[in-house]
Design a protein around this nucleic acid. Sequence first.
DNA 1: CTACAAGCTCAACTTAACTTGAGGTCAAGC
DNA 2: GCTTGACCTCAAGTTAAGTTGAGCTTGTAG
Lengths: 148, 148
Amino acid sequence: MAPVRELTVGQVAMRSGVAVSALHFYEARGLIRSHRTSGNQRRYGRDVLRRVAIIRVAQEVGISLADIAAAFQSLPEERTPTREDWNLLSTAWRDELDQKIAQLKKLRDGLTDCIGCGCMSIDKCPLRNKEDRLSAQGSGARRLVVAR
Amino acid sequence: MAPVRELTVGQVAMRSGVAVSALHFYEARGLIRSHRTSGNQRRYGRDVLRRVAIIRVAQEVGISLADIAAAFQSLPEERTPTREDWNLLSTAWRDELDQKIAQLKKLRDGLTDCIGCGCMSIDKCPLRNKEDRLSAQGSGARRLVVAR
DNA sequence: CTACAAGCTCAACTTAACTTGAGGTCAAGC
DNA sequence: GCTTGACCTCAAGTTAAGTTGAGCTTGTAG
């Protein structure tokens, strides 16, 4: 039984579908780790594929690399994450994800539901209210569309 | 009954929670419209608040201004959108929004569900599969995280 | 052993989405 | 009638997330 082979950048790029330059970039940002061969080339463990997959999906729904990196802080350095580790990350994100899902649903349904309001009474518009909630939670951890 | 007052940039900024400069920017990008007073100042109709609310929420979930602008194309120029108009926009987006919701759910649940896989068999990982589906639909309308 | 694809680093360029600043105009209150 | 805060335009700066390119090294297949 061959030991689980380590992956080169090229292989990771191929399997994950992101460019080599992006992998370098993620590494520079602390999102993924590698060790080097004697010839200074990167080698990745298998878990990098999971990380990259998560990065891509999270980004797609509007989570910034910085936030992803922050979430990844809960994962151990220099040790392949266990089920427990991933679990922690999961719970760390769950609220945020739930919120985003709710937001999307309201956007989707709001566009339909809101049709009656004609924006005559903005303050009662579901979309408007959602916005208010967003700015209401303004202080504290500000994420996404940060306007400095 | 006072006629529905038109709004100045400052008022829209205040009520919508976005900066005046952002409103200028949205206008330059064709996302919102205004007409000018004799003194060359912008005046907005009420519907601008709805538009801005939608812009903000859509952005928050990772939809680009370009895509939002494209969706807004279905809205009439120079006429306050009717329920029908907003309805069209709603259906235009519905699929995309449904997809995104599904994605978020999978990200959320995947982080939990995936715990057993330990990423030993990447090809069977729910997250990984989601990724594959994404790149599989690669051709055609490419949106979000466009890598040129 | 040598060719050449794949890696490496580092700096510079790109796009999106705004913000900031300079320099000038408008309008409402005193 | 003048002052002060809201507006205007246009150019340049900023941050995120990468990409591109130059110049140099590695490693594998013939």
